[in-house]
C-alpha cells in the first residue's frame, strides 16, 4: 500500500469514518512516514480553519421572504432577470411558434394545389371507331373518338 492510499485513510480517520480494519496499519504507517504525518497535521489545520469560518448569519430578508408568504405552496421566484423568463418573451415565443405552424400548413396547402394541377391527365385515344349501338330502335353513333375508354 502506498502513501496515497494511507492519506485517503487519514482523510476518513479525521471524519471518524475509517473502517476499524484499517486503523492498525494506518497508525503503524504513520509511525514511520514523515510525509503522511505532515499530511495529517495539515488536514487537521484545514479542518480547524474551516470550523472557524463556519458561522454565518442568515439575512433578515430571507426570513421575510419565506415566512411572510400567505401560502408557501405558491411559488414566487424572486429573480426572473433572464429575458426568456419574462412574460413578454413568453408571449413572443408563443407568437413565433404559432406563426411557424401556420407557415408550414399554408406551404403544404399551396404545394398540394400546385402538385395536383401539374400532374399529367390520363388520356386514352380510341384507335378504332366506336361501334354503333341500338337502344329501343334508336341507333346511337359516337360522334368523336377523341377521348374515352374503349371497352
Amino acid at each position: 500500500m502506498n502513501c496515497e492510499q494511507y492519506q485517503e485513510y487519514i482523510s476518513q480517520l479525521i471524519d471518524g469514518e475509517l473502517d476499524n480494519a484499517y486503523e492498525a496499519s494506518l497508525f503503524e504507517h504513520l509511525g514511520s512516514c514523515e510525509q503522511c504525518r505532515t499530511f495529517l497535521k495539515n488536514i487537521l489545520s484545514l479542518k480547524n480553519t474551516l470550523t472557524v469560518i463556519r458561522p454565518m448569519t442568515v439575512p433578515a430578508s430571507l426570513d421575510q421572504r419565506v415566512l411572510s408568504q400567505s401560502s408557501p405552496t405558491v411559488r414566487q421566484p424572486m429573480r426572473h432577470n433572464l429575458f426568456w423568463h419574462t412574460e413578454k418573451a413568453q408571449f413572443s415565443f408563443r407568437a413565433i411558434g404559432l406563426a411557424a405552424i401556420l407557415s408550414v400548413l399554408t406551404s403544404f396547402a399551396v404545394f398540394s394545389l400546385w402538385y395536383t394541377s401539374h400532374q399529367p391527365q390520363p388520356t386514352v385515344v380510341c384507335l378504332t371507331p366506336l361501334p354503333e349501338v341500338e337502344v329501343n330502335g334508336y341507333v346511337i353513333v359516337a360522334s368523336s373518338p377523341t377521348k374515352g375508354i374503349n371497352q
Binding site: M56, P59, L62, P72, P77, M78
Partner: peptide, 28 residues
C-alpha cells in the same frame, strides 16, 4: 435549518442574492 441551508447555498454559489433565492425555493 435555515442557517445550514443558506450557508450551503452561499458557499456553493458565492452570490448572496442567488443563495437567498435558492434557500427560499428550498423551503417552499
Amino acid at each position: 435549518h435555515k442557517t445550514a441551508i443558506y450557508r450551503y447555498c452561499l458557499r456553493m454559489l458565492n452570490d448572496s442574492a442567488a443563495a437567498e433565492d435558492a434557500a427560499q425555493e428550498t423551503f417552499i
